[in-house]
Amino acid sequence: MKKILFVCLGNICRSPLAEAIFKKKLLEHGLNDQIMADSAGTANYHVGENPDPRTVEIAAKHNVPVNHKGQQFKKSHTDEYDYLLAMDQSNYGNMVAEMGEDSEKLMLMRDFDPYGKGEDVPDPWYGGMNGFENVYQILNRSLDDFIVFLKKKHDL
Score class of each variant (00 low, 15 high):
Glu19Pro: 03
Asp52Arg: 00
Asp120Thr: 01
Asp38Val: 07
Gly131Met: 02
Ile138Met: 12
Phe112Asp: 03
Met87Arg: 08
Gln71Asp: 07
Asp120Gln: 05
Ile58Ala: 00
Ala37His: 06
Glu101His: 13
Asn140Pro: 02
Gln137Ala: 09
Val56Ile: 15
Ala18Cys: 08
Met129Cys: 02
Ser90Leu: 10
Tyr92Ser: 06
Pro65Cys: 09
Asn44Ile: 07
Thr42Asn: 08
Asn94Gly: 12
Tyr81Gln: 10
Phe149Gln: 02
Tyr81Asp: 09
Gly100Asn: 07
His68Cys: 10
Tyr45Cys: 02
His77Tyr: 15
Leu31Ala: 03
Ala60Tyr: 06
Ala97Met: 12
Glu28Lys: 11
Pro65Gly: 10
Arg141Val: 15
Gly118Gln: 04
Lys74Cys: 12
Gly100His: 11
Met99Asn: 15
Ser76Glu: 15
Ile21Ser: 05
Glu98Ala: 15
Pro124Gln: 04
Thr55Glu: 01
Asn32Gly: 04
Asp123Val: 03
Phe73Glu: 12
Gly127Cys: 04
Ala43Gly: 13
Lys23Trp: 05
Gly116Arg: 10
His46Asn: 14
Asp52Ile: 00
Asp82Val: 04
Phe22Arg: 01
Tyr81Ile: 06
Arg54Asn: 11
Asp102Pro: 00
Glu119Val: 00
Tyr126Asp: 03
Met87Leu: 14
Asp33Cys: 06
Pro51Arg: 05
His77Leu: 09
Gly30Leu: 08
Asp38Tyr: 07
Thr42Gln: 13
